[in-house]
Simulated scan of single mutants.
Amino acid sequence: MEAFDQVLEQYTPMINSVLKRAKVYKNHEYYRHCATIALWEAWRKYDPVHGPFAPFAYRYMLTTIYREMTKENHYEEHYASYEKETHQL
């Protein structure tokens, strides 16, 4: 199997596609990093017996991005900071 540097170079357009499909509009670099890590994990776990690598990697990255978005939304809903109101008398 080829080195991960070559895989990353080959699948960078797919990372862009995954981010577009997931409609990432904020924290773009964070989600790009998550997708890159997911690609690496998919590359490590891939078994050629189960089919081609591209669909496996795409689904793995998309699922990872959706999980991260869910975690982020949950955090924002439950742990959002707010400032104390100051009242002038």
Rank of each mutant, 00 (worst) to 15 (best):
M1R: 15
F4W: 09
F4G: 12
D5G: 11
Q6V: 10
V7F: 02
V7Q: 12
L8H: 15
E9M: 06
Q10K: 15
Y11W: 09
T12I: 01
T12W: 05
R21V: 00
A22Y: 13
K23F: 11
K23P: 12
Y25Q: 11
E29V: 00
E29T: 02
Y30C: 06
Y30E: 07
Y31Q: 05
H33T: 01
H33A: 03
A35T: 03
T36C: 04
T36G: 09
I37S: 08
I37V: 10
W40L: 01
W40H: 04
E41S: 10
E41C: 04
E41W: 01
A42I: 02
W43E: 06
K45P: 06
Y46A: 06
D47K: 15
D47Q: 15
P48F: 02
P48K: 09
V49N: 13
G51S: 06
G51N: 10
F53H: 09
A54G: 08
A54W: 03
A57P: 10
Y58S: 07
Y60D: 06
Y60W: 11
Y60I: 00
Y60H: 15
M61T: 12
M61Y: 03
T64L: 07
I65L: 12
I65Y: 13
Y66N: 12
R67N: 13
E68S: 14
T70C: 06
E77G: 07
E77D: 11
Y79Q: 05
Y79M: 07
A80P: 04
A80R: 01
Y82E: 08
E83G: 02
E83T: 06
E83Y: 01
K84G: 11
K84R: 10
E85G: 06
H87Q: 12
Q88I: 01
Q88D: 09
Q88N: 09
L89Q: 10
